[in-house]
Design a protein around this nucleic acid. Structure first.
Lengths: 347, 347
DNA sequence: GCTACTGATGTAACCGGTTACAAGAACGGA
DNA sequence: TCCGTTCTTGTAACCGGTTACATCAGTAGC
């Protein structure tokens, strides 16, 4: 590895000048600058990131806090790949890399004593890497840790969970709006009894989707009794069970809005098991637009989220906070109703 | 942030001693060690990673090189989440973090001039972070860059692509074995004309699966004419097209082994479009065991890969190379045939 | 011609650890 | 008692950058 001193020596200047060429080119005379740049290129010099981070007290890395939820094993993030690619691409175009941090579960294996009761340990871990910022992906369990991160003063962007702090903000889909659109769609097809299977309690997007569902009903002049709201947990199984319960009512709904595609698929299976045809006897709408949505039979009408947009928006918000004291407003990504077959056609 | 000097001062020892307590505890007397550990804990001291990396010329990070394949846009890694979780968990239990590096595509956007023709730039990028090692996820495009990484002398583990170099090895599934098992399964059900839809040319797992297919046929005493091998590209569409071509033959096969679940689903759709029933008229086996495999109707019999095993094995191989000059043998992860409905039952 | 100011560059003190080497203490053996 | 080990700890030189401050040259103003 070539060091700045070698470049300096070859150019007949001091290391300070070499450093300036890379950090504040305007303060160096044109001739010197060109000479240094030339030599640096010839020698394939690139500044050592560890030294730079140490000296600047700031690294070119953004931490990614993400983990499985041990209370919900097997749960998959519906679009992790798009999210990561969007994030990585947006960050790297500004010179930042993404550092995946080991968190609660990993650490729990390693140090059985350390638990989330003491999230400070994790915050200090982020500190000692001199991270420029933090992206937090909601995994359900880490509410305390998230709060601690947000309080630490490090720029933080959370995904799908509201976060506030001196330099914290968040990105989420317009869950309420998407849910309302789904309900309006069902109402416009003539459905009057529209039920919903919600996500787990305490989950912010789930709550917003339920709120949107109620708003959609209100807008359509329909009433949504308590009995039309069933609590699920985003998993397919809960969609199946929930649908079965709904169908066993004396006055079953003719349409269901499921707060996740997985649950919608479960609902589809329950309807099939009950001998109902979809969409003729029952209309189903999901949420997320995961890959399987277009694959099931009938193909699922669903509310699509802007998957790569999450990454881009998170990166944008974070970069906005790095090197500025302003805290951007929370970002609400638009959702889009994707009409397929599970609700039938307009009539 | 508390520094080692502060801890040292409070303990009445020198920084060197504090450093030793954390790095080579055995060289410090028990009483001093306990005192230092105690104070360090009370002050919540943890060593600054930048300084440590600078001094040691080695950071506690492993680079992850992964990108989308711009020749195959929209391609999803079949099990990225499991892989990442396995990797992260295994690495973090040894104190390493995962650094997602920006690569070709990201850089191309940023510096349109820099392309893979000059992968050295990426290698130097890994150098200046003092990475402890590198995990390379095959994205198809980066063969040159992968070679450059492998030659650089940094410990490298590639996934699903053969890689050799002074400190390089790779992890892949037993693709040939899995494919052969699939074919044997079909043969045992009485099928005599078994076709295959392969992955793209130049893709190592695809080639191995084709090889396993041929071996399976040979073991069953069947012959596989050239006309029974159709080249696909892992995407669903190519499975659909490939199946249609096979069915248009004068003597169509009664069973197909598709080298990916996506293509198997395509084949299923083509069979349905042709008015054939699966499994009665046509048996289908896939590969990967992605989520949709169990969801399609009929549920797909497929060769499952050990998804979290990839991450664990990669981490294991990497950790084996870090701090040792031995290069582990390539890892072949076992595959498992998951029998569902798309081949019918034993008869 | 002298002063004040601006611009370019060098000097050296950091950043916060690690570690080779030196030094001193303790201890066993002759 | 003296010497050679072994164990423990301190001193100080790194690692490779960044940057406050000093210096010096050049230039404009009077």
């Amino acid at each position: 590895m070539v060091t700045a001193r070698e470049v300096a020596q070859l150019c007949g200047v001091s290391v300070a000048t070499v450093s300036r060429v890379f950090n504040r080119p305007a303060t160096v005379s044109a001739t010197t600058r060109e000479r240094v740049e030339r030599v640096a290129r010839d020698l394939d010099f690139s500044p050592n990131e560890s030294a730079r981070a140490l000296s600047r007290q700031q690294s070119a890395m953004v931490g990614l806090v993400w983990d499985t939820d041990h209370r919900r094993p097997g749960w998959r993030h519906p679009f992790l790949q798009d999210l990561l690619l969007g994030l990585k691409s947006a960050l790297s175009s500004h010179g930042y890399h993404l550092l995946m941090l080991a968190t609660s579960d990993d650490a729990r294996e390693r140090h059985p004593g350390v638990s989330l009761a003491d999230p400070i340990a994790y915050v200090s871990m982020t500190r000692r890497h001199h991270l420029a910022g933090l992206v937090l992906i909601d995994s359900g369990t880490d509410a305390d840790a998230f709060t601690a991160f947000a309080q630490s003063g490090l720029p933080c962007v959370a995904l799908d969970v509201a976060l506030s702090g001196p330099r914290a903000t968040y990105v989420t889909s317009d869950n309420a709006g998407g849910a309302a659109a789904a309900v309006r769609h069902l109402a416009s097809l003539g459905h009057r009894r529209i039920a919903t299977i919600t996500g787990p309690r305490g989950n912010a997007p789930a709550a917003a989707r339920t709120e949107g569902y109620l708003r959609g009903l209100a807008e359509a002049g329909l009433e949504g009794g308590e009995d039309l709201v069933i609590t699920g947990d985003f998993y397919r199984e809960s969609g199946f069970v929930g649908m079965r319960r709904l169908l066993s009512r004396r006055n079953p709904p003719t349409a269901v809005f499921a707060a996740s595609d997985e649950m919608a698929v479960g609902a589809l299976l329950a309807a099939r098991a009950a001998g109902l045809r979809v969409p003729e006897d029952l209309a189903v709408v999901g949420f997320d637009d995961i890959e399987v949505a277009s694959l099931v039979d009938p193909a699922l009408t669903t509310v699509a989220q802007d998957k790569p947009g999450f990454g881009t928006a998170a990166a944008g918000a974070l970069l906005g906070m790095i090197g500025s004291t302003e805290v951007p407003e929370p970002v609400l990504l638009p959702t889009k109703l994707v009409v397929r077959e599970s609700c039938g056609s307009w009539s």
